[in-house]
Amino acid sequence: MVDIVATAAEAVAGIGDGATVMVGGFGAAGQPVELIDALIEGGARELTIVNNNAGNGDLGLAALIREGRVRKVICSFPRQSDSWHFDEKYRAGEIELELVPQGNLAERIRAAGAGIGAFFTPTGFGTMLAEGKEVREIDGRQQVLEYALRADVALVKAHVADEAGNITYRKTARNFGPIMAAAAATTVIQVNEVVPIGGIDPENVVTPGIYVDRVVRVTPREGAER
């Protein structure tokens, strides 16, 4: 049963110290900035964050890292021209990094949501990111064992929700949203609009409400991304 809550603070309530939090988004597209702001406000520390990146600029995930709330980042692409807050913490030894090839990251998250414990994949074979991992030859190819990746909470930005928690996304802002929504014990989604039941054509639902626990409508900042 989905709760439509009034504020981002209510939406992130109960995220405690040491939680593993999946954060949707690819760079700024699909990043739930308002939910992250509320998470910062809520004071949780020692978080493990799962995201494609490790923060861009000064907003959202970058601010969470700047505030020293993140113990570990599991991501594919931390280092970018504007990842200065992560870079500083990493170089100071204040943040742990688990670097995961992007396809493995996505598939590990998907597997968790689908109840799959682990899988074999050719990606990473023969590289330093597969060191120490079990390898088997399957279908004539060397494949590496990768485990499912689950979380206590997923924070996702989407476009429209109905009151049953069914979700649609916009363009490439969809990215990790649907798979993270399925891989976390509690899924929190910020949307631009909430409509009554029946307001989304069932054919167009991308994340069905079964995966969604809390929805909050946020007002986009003036001049900020939609």
Binding site: R79, L97, G124
Partner: peptide
């Protein structure tokens, strides 16, 4: 600081 992104998947995919 290492950053792999989709490179390992793209190379094989």
């Amino acid at each position: 600081i290492p950053a792999v992104g989709g490179a390992m998947d793209l190379a094989l995919g």
